[in-house]
């Protein structure tokens, strides 16, 4: 469960509020899609949820744990996939995964099982011995996804996770997200792909210029307009008009 309470953030070098007193609640068993135009504040919000940025005001709770006051405990609940997979190019894939697993204090048996299983599914097992610098964008993305899932986190936070994945891997990830939510866990992800949001999400939130302009189910979004328009058009209208 994720609760965002009245959270605002202005970057040190920024002039405007990147995120302006937003409120959100993502329940257990829910897949929540976070939408909005470029520069709307999606990544900023996700960075605050994951403890990368400190909110100027407001609180964020992960499964009831305050991210700012109990960061280590809160982060243990999270599996995070950042929007940019450029990290630790000088480590090999397996070294990276072992590092992550050590931090999450995953024991040898579980990490072997997870790595073996996920690396097999995502077809990067052969590359685990190579340095991350030699990976393609999608391979890095896959590696980070495996790292994010290695400790069986109840809350998944994914910033544009499908970018760069091949269709097969994208399909797999979507299936995994569904299964995760079905098991009573929380999935929060940002995306620009409307069909994905439509098909996958239990609820969506739309952010524009740092403010949430809509939260609810896709059907609720349709009801506002009282038209059976495509989600894409609804989205464009909403973002343009308000």
């Amino acid at each position: 469960m994720i609760i965002i309470n009245n959270v605002s953030k202005t970057y040190a070098r920024g002039r405007v509020k990147a995120v302006n007193s937003i409120n959100l609640e993502v329940k257990k068993g829910e897949i929540f899609g976070f939408l909005g135009p470029n520069g709307a504040g999606k990544t900023t919000t996700i960075k605050m949820i994951t403890g990368i940025l400190k909110p100027d005001e407001g609180q964020i709770f992960i499964n009831g744990i305050n991210v700012v006051s109990e960061p280590i405990k809160a982060k243990k609940q999270i599996g995070f996939v950042p929007d940019n997979p450029e990290i630790f190019n000088r480590l090999t894939g397996i070294e990276y995964l072992n590092f992550i697993a050590d931090i999450y204090e995953v024991d040898g048996k579980q990490r072997y099982k997870k790595i073996n299983e996920l690396a097999e599914i995502f077809e990067i097992k052969d590359a685990l011995n190579s340095s991350i610098g030699s990976y393609s964008h999608g391979m890095k993305q896959k590696l980070i996804i495996i790292g994010a899932l290695i400790h069986n986190p109840p809350v998944w936070i994914l910033d544009e996770p499908l970018v760069g994945l091949d269709p097969k891997a994208a399909f797999l990830l979507k299936e995994m997200m569904k299964k995760h939510a079905d098991n009573g866990n929380t999935v929060f992800f940002s995306t620009h792909i409307m069909e994905v949001a439509e098909r996958l999400c239990d609820r969506i939130g739309i952010i524009k210029k740092g403010e949430i302009i809509f939260t609810g189910t896709i059907d609720e979004l349709r009801q506002i307009r009282e038209e059976n328009d495509s989600l894409e058009n609804l989205f464009l209208e909403l973002v343009d008009n308000e």
């Binding site: 994951t50 403890g51 990368i52 809160a74 450029e86 931090i103 999450y104």
Partner: peptide, 11 residues
């Protein structure tokens, strides 16, 4: 910039 990723981990 990887420091951001470090910060997202329960370190």
């Amino acid at each position: 910039r990887a420091f951001e990723f470090i910060k997202s981990l329960p370190i």
